[in-house]
Amino acid sequence: EQRPLGGITEIAPFTGIDDRGLGDLSGPLGWQLAYPFLQKQLYDFYGDKRIIENQYPAFKKQLNFLITTAPMNLYSWDISDHEALDPKPEGLSAAAFYYHHILLGAEFAGILGNSRDSIEYATLAKSIKENIIAKYHVPATGRFDNATQSAQLFALYYDLAPDRDKSFDVLSKEFERHKWHISTGIFSTKMMFDVLRENNMNDAAYRIANQKDFPGWGYMLENGATTLWETWAFPESDPSRNHPMFGSVDEWFFRSLGGINPLAPGFKRIQIKPQPAGDLSWVKTSYNSVHGKIVSDWKKQANGFQMHIVIPANTRADVYCPSAAGKPVMENGKEIKAVRYESGYAVMELGSGEYNLSSF
């Protein structure tokens, strides 16, 4: 719900809860972010800009509230990474959530053809990013804020790190310190899967997701969970034993293992980039997009890699088939020309249809 001054409440329907909020009974920044973030998700997955168009006046009111309320153009308080096991990077997360709001303002204005607003918000976002780096980055170290898994993932997810290699190195050491178990909360758990996928590090994601002891999804299963808990530890009575906040692991099956992601709103253009990991020898994935079913099945064989993919009508896909550089990719006995080879993949641009690909 929107408050009179423009802020969004922590929960809806509103019951008066405003933990770490921004005034006028508005909620904390991370929870306020749900309002524009959901619009962005719906646009990306369905390609319909009407929700952005219809909500834009209210979103502008929210942005104006955030901008006029921000001390020195930065926030430092928030609930932060709820249920993280390490100390939460409250200041960094609050600043990053503010930055995210303004980035979406610039993007939504651009989608609607409002160049004036888009330029204004983009300029402000650049300033906020510079302020975050100046305040929370430890120069020459790659560390952000308290350098926990959460902190490093916030920095990498929002592209704040001046030296990404160093920031990844700090993150890897944090994974090692936790014996490749997760210590993240509601936000940086999703960020972890996205960051590792986008940087071809799915083996790390698989190793973490596949742990059977505390903390992790396997620990929940080993302890009788049939739904996701709100906490990594078993909730005796409170909080919830049926809470979707750690459900980004389900998204990981589709986006990383199956490799299905939109490259244009509504999956008009698709990326199919499976990322085999660990001891997995096969994966079957499908997603019912607004254009039709997208399929990405693959299996490893002793002499190569096989993919079965389906690209819906009136769409195109960038298809990544694991392959050594320069090696041919075959489709039912005929070679398909790769437009490039990168990071262990042959990349092909394919139109609608069903394909059976193999590489050796």
Rank of each mutant, 00 (worst) to 15 (best):
N146H: 07
I294T: 06
Y46D: 07
M330A: 15
W31V: 10
K40G: 08
K61M: 00
A209F: 09
W31I: 12
D279T: 09
K212S: 15
D297V: 09
R164W: 08
N199T: 09
F267D: 00
N114I: 05
A94T: 07
G247E: 03
T148N: 05
L280D: 09
N356L: 06
T15L: 14
G21L: 07
A58H: 00
R241C: 15
L156W: 01
R340H: 06
Y157E: 05
F97D: 00
L63Y: 01
T189K: 04
G224Q: 12
K284T: 07
T315G: 03
E10D: 14
K40H: 13
S115D: 14
D78E: 13
E230P: 14
L92C: 15
I111L: 03
F360T: 15
K293M: 12
H243C: 12
H291D: 05
A95Y: 03
P13Q: 11
G326D: 08
S150Q: 07
V347T: 02
T68R: 12
I208H: 08
D318R: 01
T285D: 05
P13N: 10
L196I: 13
L5F: 02
T227C: 15
F193K: 09
L160N: 02
M307T: 02
I111S: 03
R143V: 06
P162S: 05
R316S: 10
S76A: 14
G351Y: 07
